[in-house]
Each structure stands twice: as structure tokens, then as C-alpha cells.
Amino acid sequence: MISPAHYVALAAILFVIGGVGVLIRRNALVVFMCVELMLNAVNLSFIAFSRLHGNLDGQVIAFFVMVVAAAEVVVGLAILTSIFRTRKSASVDDASLLKY
């Protein structure tokens, strides 16, 4: 196989893109998608290391991560939907009631 460094680099790039997206984008759905991107980047690096070490530990962790991501998406989208229904806006900047 090609060197795991390539995979880890790709995972890092995907992670950074996802992180920047979380910090910059205003639409809540896009923020969720960027969070998913970060999680998948981490999954990629886990798989690469599992292939490197020759055991299945990394792949099992990747499964766990995917399950957690799925549950998180359910809850997050439910919250976002209820916020959108009351406030008619999906922008994260508008939910600033916890301001000092």
C-alpha cells in the first residue's frame, strides 16, 4: 500500500477544511455538514492506521464514530428544525440570547 502519510495528510486537510467551515459558515446546516466532514476525516485516519497495524481496531472505532455521528445528526437536526420553526432563520448568528 502507499504510505499512510498520504492518508493522514488527506485526513488533516479534510479536518481543517471542516474546521474552518464550522467557524466561518453561517448556515446551520452547512455547519453540520462541516462537522460531518471533520468526523469523516478522523474516520479516514483511523482506517489508515488500522491498515498500517494490520488489526481491525481502527475500523471498529470508525464504526463507533459513524454511529455517534448519526445519532448526533438526528438530535442536531431536530433542534435546528424547532429553532427554524420559531425563529424563521437558520443562521447561527441569530441564536445569541446567551449574550452578556
Binding site: 474546521g19 464550522v22 467557524l23 466561518i24 447561527v92 448568528d93 441564536a95 445569541s96 440570547l97 446567551l98 449574550k99 452578556y100
Partner: peptide, 17 residues
Amino acid sequence: VRKVQTGFVRSYALSML
């Protein structure tokens, strides 16, 4: 110090990062 609490999710995310 309380002015740190801006209420913006993105600034909280930045501080977490």
C-alpha cells in the same frame, strides 16, 4: 471578563478550537 460571553456560537467554537 463577562464580555467574553458574546452569545455567538462561532466564537465559542473558536475558543474550543
